[in-house]
Design a binder for these strands. Sequence first.
DNA 1: CCAAAAGTGTTCGTCGTACACCCATGT
DNA 2: ACATGGGTGTACGACGAACACTTTTGG
Lengths: 239, 239
Amino acid sequence: MNVHDIIKHGSDYFLPNLSIDLVIIGYHEHKLKCLLLKIGDKWILPGGHIKIDESLDVAVKRILKFRTGLEEPYMKFLAIFGDKDRKFDKDFKQFFEDKGIPWGEDYWINNRFITLTFYSLVDIDNTQPVLGEFDEAFEWFDFDDLPDMWLDHKSIVNSARNRLKEDVKYEQITYNLLPEQFTMPQLHQLHQTILEEKVDRSRFQKKIIATGLLERLSLLNKDSPGRNPYQYTLRKRDS
Amino acid sequence: MNVHDIIKHGSDYFLPNLSIDLVIIGYHEHKLKCLLLKIGDKWILPGGHIKIDESLDVAVKRILKFRTGLEEPYMKFLAIFGDKDRKFDKDFKQFFEDKGIPWGEDYWINNRFITLTFYSLVDIDNTQPVLGEFDEAFEWFDFDDLPDMWLDHKSIVNSARNRLKEDVKYEQITYNLLPEQFTMPQLHQLHQTILEEKVDRSRFQKKIIATGLLERLSLLNKDSPGRNPYQYTLRKRDS
DNA sequence: CCAAAAGTGTTCGTCGTACACCCATGT
DNA sequence: ACATGGGTGTACGACGAACACTTTTGG
């Protein structure tokens, strides 16, 4: 099956009214980032569809792996978007006409889709984004500086950002945004960025260490002034 | 459109691969209950499908209202069940053959469905369940004493029960399980039932009152021994 | 030696816990 | 009067918040 066939007859391969959109979140230089793809002059969330004979969780992992190259990324259900007027027809018409690609009202791609959204936390430096057939570029955008996006995709991104803020309070999930080895100041700064507020260093460190989830490694040699921080890594499960 | 037409050609009216299942939860005599429908010799969760030109939230409210008669029930998203082998074909074949109703492999009802599940909290005494075309009976089942159910419906019910336990810790939602006016001992007992553990009366009362969400009304006249409890009701929003 | 960064300690207040005590009602 | 059930108060401890202090490094 080729891409132009899918645009037209996607229902032959995929569940016809469902789509999956991913908010892939990274962290770089004290900023939360989100991976977007450029189609035409606007940006879009990476996503895909569920094969007719494919379980949902398999589909999500397949799409996520395809987009990031990661084997076991952290991933969590975000929300459903099911409005009846949620269609991409006008945007696609514009795009395909600009590109000189055939387009028709009855193409599958113009269907009304119910979208299942997931968010994923990744280490940017360990991620190799992959472009789809129509994607002209990818870019990690700052959450506070999003470009023009298709339809309601900007609000999906923002709901993921708010959701992350909520989840961090109850779950230990932020390690996924950092390299395998990281320092406490790094983790501390990350939490402050996510929560958008100051967090007491002393208390933070004690709380994190008290969970027993981290393993303290050797000191990191910096070349900047100040004491060298310890490095930490997520403790193995079976220990 | 009649029901036999829908079984066969449902895709003409509904999104073809999506279904909605509802875990409708009530509370009676210190027990959490769940509304189930009898089809054949097994029980099933009330549910329905999304019309082709209908928003998801409208669909859920429509189905919930149809099943309970309630205008504005409390409702919350639970989970998605999207396994590829999730089909009802064998059960339906059995049922329709027993009933002498025509059945064919290619009927819509045999599709693979991705199921969106929601849970709802209702006041049992204020709820009038409605039977669908094939439903032989409805009944409020104790969570600890569920009957034989279709497919994975029993596990859906159990995940709703666990979810409720989690949600109660962070949200004030339990009022929906009680009549409009209730007493503090009632609410206290309800929380103990949901959490399946003892809760200190004194602390509970102080915490609830401190939220400022409740309005204290007149005393309730009991005919049992002991002091008369105050009645409470949920304070109006705009006050 | 000093500034900067990392790590640890101390004090204080708030809130959850457990329990005791007081109040009202039917028998 | 007393058992039963409902409402409130108190003493204790754990934990979060704020801030101070010590340790290590580069310049």
